[in-house]
Design a protein around this nucleic acid. Sequence first.
DNA 1: AAACTACTCAACCGCTAGACC
DNA 2: TGGTCTAGCGGTTGAGTAGTT
Length: 324
Amino acid sequence: MGRPPCCDKVGIKKGPWTPEEDIILVSYIQEHGPGNWRSVPTNTGLSRCSKSCRLRWTNYLRPGIKRGNFTPHEEGMIIHLQALLGNKWAAIASYLPQRTDNDIKNYWNTHLKKKLKKFQAALEPPHQASDSTTTGQYLSKSFNDRRSLDISNDHASSTRLSQSQSSTYASSTENISRLLEGWMRSSPKPLKGTQDEELQSNDSFENTKLVKSASVPALHLQLQHKTKDEQEGGDIVSHEEFDSILSFENLNNAAWDKSTCDSMPEKCSEASVPDFADKVDHDIAESHRQKTENCAPPLSFLEKWLLDENVGQGDDMMELSPMF
DNA sequence: AAACTACTCAACCGCTAGACC
DNA sequence: TGGTCTAGCGGTTGAGTAGTT
């Protein structure tokens, strides 16, 4: 006796979503908000199962998602969070709110894993090269060897590489935007502001939800578990190693602030930081605290971030929610 | 120019946890 | 308390694309 399918498979469309389907889904969610996915196919007339609708929304259509072109600091965060948490993509994604877990997972599997493998291979004599697959091992070995290659340069080159690649994400999003614009013009629905604003306001709703359901408690548990592993002789990430994570020249304060404070305000609260410190690692938390202390005045923080981002990677900026 | 290979990433599948009755 | 249902998660697949021969 297996679990019944989430929806009747007969007549359910599979495969890539069309822009028209995207529009239908987005417009429905704009009106009703995300959630109650089961009713989405029936209410929208989409021949998709509820799961597919939810995934399409969370992985692709949800406003505020940053597509492609992972920045060096994002790479650094992914690498080290993966070393710390393992393949807990949702937990990792909660620290990179503009990225979906699917995106991070794909990026890890297609880019970072290989990169780290190469990195490890370069560090180890051939006879020592094991078939290890955990990044913790990669990282521990890599960072313990201070003769190591300049990983920042590696990041930079990879970013250049990825930036040179054409982005199907972008083109798809543009198509949808265009279609949405057309739809908005023809839609009788009275809407305040632009489509983007509308989407962004939904985004704040969605982000709020994300924050609430974000894996922070789970992360605490996992971190506790992880640090326990370390105490028991596990080969995860040492304090020193994690310092190096956060001191990546490209993993600047703005990076952390942006990805944490922007959409995870509770992490910026003074109350949450000591808790974080207890459970994770003093060094990490100290670094985090220093970074998050800047969060108190949201506007000045934002200004700081904007300035930093403009200097460092202006091309890569996300549009800010009008809620700011 | 065609055939082949490698790579990327959107989407799917199957499982689990938690909410609800 | 146990069963059912749903949302969410991580692993995997396969279509499309880029690169190479």
